[in-house]
Structure formats: C-alpha cells, structure tokens
Design a protein around this nucleic acid. Structure first.
Lengths: 196, 196
DNA sequence: CAGCACGGAGAACGATCGTTCTCCGCGGAT
DNA sequence: ATCCGCGGAGAACGATCGTTCTCCGTGCTG
C-alpha cells in the first residue's frame, strides 16, 4: 500500500525512528516538529495525519522505547542459562548499552526530569517503565532461587549505574554494579554475621 | 544598602530562591523569566542587571544548589561519630531528602536530561556535582577504614536510590540502599568466599 | 484530453519566550 | 518648589514553535 522508499519499514516507523533519535539525543522540548520532518523525510501534513499532536508523538516514542529496551534486555538475559547468571547478565546488557556511541542515559529518567513535573502522561510512562523493569528483575531473582529482598538493592545498583554512566560518559559503572550484585548474591547465599 | 523587604536576605538571594524553586519543580525550559519575576517580586530590569541572561541564572542556580545540597549532606553526616556509621548516614540523609514534599529527584540529573545534550555548561556542572559527591563518599569510606573499592558500589546505590525515589514518589529506596550498603560493608569486613 | 483528488513544500498564524525599551512616579539635592 | 536620576511596570520586538492553510504539480479516471 504505502510506498517505502528507504527500506521495508512503514512511514510510521520512519517517523518514530527519526523522532526517537532526536528526542533521545537533544531532549523532548528541544526538538521541533520541523526537525522531525527533516530527519524523517515525512511532510508536516502527513506527520499530523499519523500523530494528532507532538504530545501524541512523544507518547508513542516513549511507549516504543520501553518495548525495544526491555526486549533487548530480555533477549540478552535469556541467552544465558537459567539461574543466578541471568541476574548478572542484566548488568552485562547495561554495559553493552553504555558503550553505544549515542548513549545518553535512560530516556525515561531524562523525560521525567524534563516534563515529569508538568506532564502526568510522561510521568506515568516513566513510572510504568521502571515498574516493569523492577518486575523483570524480581522474576530473575525468584527464578535464581535468591530471596526477594535482593530485588530492590539489585534494581538500585542498575539504576545508579545508568545515571552514573550517562553523567560520566563511561561504561565502568556496569562492571561496578555487576561486582556489587555478585557480592550481594554471595552474601545472602553464604550467611555471614547479620549485625543489627 | 539595598533594602530587603521580605527578610534579611539580599535581592540576589530572593531571585535565586524563587528561580531555584521553579526550576526544580517544573524544569529549566518550562520556567520563563516572567515567572521568576512574579515569584521573586524583582522587576525584569533588575533581574537582567543581576544576571545577564537566563543561562547565567540557570548556571547560578545549579552552582548554589550544589553548595547547599552537599552542605546539608555534610552537616548530617558529621553529626554522627566518625567511622562506618558516617557512610550509612549518607543514606539517612537521602531518606530525609526524599521525604521533603517537593522532592523531585536530583536537580543535576534532571537538568542533564533536559539540556545536557545541548548545553556543555549544564553537562559540566552536573558532572562536577556527581564527581564531588563521589569524592565525598570516597573520603568517608577511607575514614571508615573500608577498602576504596567500596566507594563505587556505594555511590551507585545512592544514585539509584535518588532516581528510584523520584520516579516512584517513595522514600523507601533510601532504606533499601542503606541495607545493601551495610551488607557490602559487612561482606568486606568478614570475608566470605570470593568466587571468580 | 479535461477534470479531479491527493500529497508535498513551505507560508501563515497565533502563542510563548528571552531580551530590551518606554514611560512614569518617587526621593533627594539645591 | 524645581530638577534630576533611579527603579518599576509592562509594552514592544524578534525569534521560535506547534499547528493549519494555501498553492501547485502529479497521476488516475472518463
């Protein structure tokens, strides 16, 4: 039906690809609809036929980013054998991500910082993304036979690694988080003293 | 010299107080100079005499916030006896902060997410703030007699707690981070097995 | 070939924002 | 009492942006 001049992707995908790259690199408010038109090659008229407003495009961007990000994580994690190794694989995936040349932190944290105070939609999508990530880690912890109390510390390490990698421009935080996670897993497997 | 109608604070302080509250609550770009004029009661003409541009005001806001934030942390930490307890006191201070009614995450992370991709000044100030925090934690770790390798994991826990508390609207992450930090400190004090 | 619906390019419009300018009233000096 | 200069209120200006509209060329239908 609709001709696809670049590749086999639909016009909507081309728009979302271009918009996603720009939004992530420069921030939501800094990217105008005109820049998206230029990057996607889709006319303004068609843009507004596909998405009724910039807000709707931002929402679509965040929803798609959530899917893609969690999909890539799951694919990486599920390539390693079931067990505690899958928990550690989360940090390996983070390390891969941090090393990507255009990495600039978590799109949801960035969007929340920019618009979370004003836009309930953006705030809600960011919360939903983090909740889904936490649930995923909780499932991995459970499947590894580790106590559920480990979930929150492990999530905090991941979250801290993302922010620290973004600000410092280094992929090192992934290794630090992974090592700390291993210590936590060991500490709970081999109970030392539990001080008050 | 300059009359201070509200309290003993200078006009510059009144501006920075008002601008800081607005910038933090709504984001940098969402706050216009007119809103700052309204909130501070300082005329536009005087605003531009004190700060040559909005960018300069943003920079002054971030510099002052760095000072205040780290000052409050140091005051809290130094109220507890020297030793490992001071490391844990960091997370207690975070818990206090998270419970403040207008808490909305780290102002530097938020600003970086919004303008870090565009403004080298904002990116640099955010990096400097995080570096200073890391150095402070490193000093506490050192003073506690703990190995320096603990610094990075402890910082990741703190960073993750800040982000998670902001997104979830809960102060719980401070407790989780504190407990994980205690386990890490214990694990290194009482060496269990160190697997490869 | 004439008529027509569609889509693209980009102008137009209204709103907002950073920044500057104008106008006016007040307080101090002579 | 008159003049002067400072500061405030807010209009003005130029730029940008989201959104819509106009105009034109193109390809299909009879």
């Amino acid at each position: 039906m609709t001709p696809s001049p670049a590749a086999g992707e639909s016009v909507e995908d081309r728009v979302l690809d271009a918009a996603g790259e720009l939004f992530y690199a420069r921030g939501l408010q800094a990217v105008g609809m005109d820049a998206i038109r230029g990057a996607s090659g889709v006319s303004l008229k068609r843009l507004y036929q596909l998405f009724p407003s910039k807000d709707a495009l931002v929402e679509a961007y965040l929803r798609r980013r959530d899917e893609h990000w969690r999909g890539a994580l799951a694919r990486h994690v599920e390539a390693v054998p079931a067990g505690p190794g899958r928990v550690l694989a989360v940090y390996d995936r983070l390390g891969q991500w941090f090393a990507e040349p255009d990495f600039r932190g978590c799109a949801f944290v960035n969007s929340f910082g920019e618009l979370g105070g004003t836009s309930p939609v953006v705030a809600g999508l960011a919360r939903a993304h983090k909740d889904a990530f936490r649930r995923y880690v909780a499932d991995l912890v459970d499947a590894a036979g580790a106590p559920a109390t480990l979930t929150d510390p492990l999530v905090l390490l991941a979250e801290g690694a993302i922010t620290t990698a973004a600000l410092s421009g280094s992929a090192e935080p992934a290794r630090h988080a992974r090592e700390a996670a291993r210590v936590l897993l060991d500490a709970v497997t081999t109970p030392g003293r539990t001080a008050g």
